[in-house]
Amino acid sequence: MAHETASIGPDRRIGRSRVADQIVDDLRERILSGELANGARLPAERELAEHYGVSGATIRESVRVLATIGLVDVRHGAGSFVTAEPDTMIGMSIASVVRLEGVGAHEVLGLLGALNRHAAQEATRHATDEEIASLRAAAEKLAAIDDIDTAREDLRAFMRRMSEISHNALLVPLCRLLADVQVELAIELSGGRLTEWMRVAGGLHEHRMALVEAVESRSPERAAEAVDAHSAYAASLILSTPQAKKVQAADPGYARLLAGMFTARLAG
């Protein structure tokens, strides 16, 4: 598919102090404001160098920084493209914190629980009857679990739907990322065995249905209680498998495992 190269506008000569940082700031502002649209190809290195009055090396450094923070995708032989996707930007920030601070499973699962709590409360206020019905349909698909891959996708769909019907644009990418990582963590700690996966994912079915019923009741208080119960039981099931104990012996907080999952999630 042909991509249109974005226009960079009038020249903006940059002072010599912290040149690359200033270029990063300028391009980031243009991307976040929509002036450089998502999917657009950045101007060629030579054009950017002339525009800012700097060397090609400085432009390459600036583009590398933008790529690191998830705003640009460098495709060798094709150019650099704007990739201002909320999931990517949020995901890269969280993944960096997980790796730098050694954030463990309890912190990640706890954060997801808190976000889901807010999402469920927002859903009681803002979701349409049809949207809540779609949440129930997603939950009912998990009544019987007999295949890991199918259940993985159905569980992701249910957890994502909860955030989507909250109609909160910030909650959606946050919950989506963390929910996907929780599902992958559950599968990893089940050792890939269907019996363990059925015990973990299947064991949460009553809690999922209670959560749906709480949202259907349109009671924020009841929804909060249902999410808290679901989150606590999910964490206890996920972290109590035989495989979890083996992994914990080598990685006490599961920090390395989680960092790898975040990285894989973003690369995928």
Rank of each mutant, 00 (worst) to 15 (best):
G15F: 01
A255Y: 01
L66T: 06
Q22E: 14
R99L: 06
V183H: 02
R160E: 12
E107L: 06
A119P: 03
S240Y: 01
R64I: 07
A226D: 08
E47F: 02
A235G: 01
H76L: 09
L174Q: 07
A37F: 02
H118G: 05
I59N: 04
T124L: 06
R30Y: 03
D26L: 08
R60Y: 08
V82Q: 00
Y233E: 12
E29R: 15
R16P: 00
L211C: 05
A139T: 14
H106C: 06
R161I: 06
S231N: 13
S219N: 10
L239M: 09
G79H: 04
G56W: 02
A264L: 07
Q121K: 12
G268D: 11
V97S: 07
A84P: 02
S7G: 05
P252R: 12
V227M: 09
M209A: 13
R176M: 04
A133R: 10
V183E: 01
L266P: 02
M92P: 01
E61G: 04
N116I: 05
P173N: 12
G260N: 10
T241G: 00
V108E: 06
A255K: 08
C175M: 00
H126F: 11
L109V: 02
P220H: 06
E45N: 14
G39C: 12
G91H: 05
L109M: 14
V65K: 08
E4G: 09
R18Q: 13
R161M: 10
A210D: 15
A84K: 11
L142F: 05
A120C: 10
Q182L: 13
L71E: 09
H205R: 12
L32R: 14
D25N: 11
E188K: 11
I132A: 03
H51N: 11
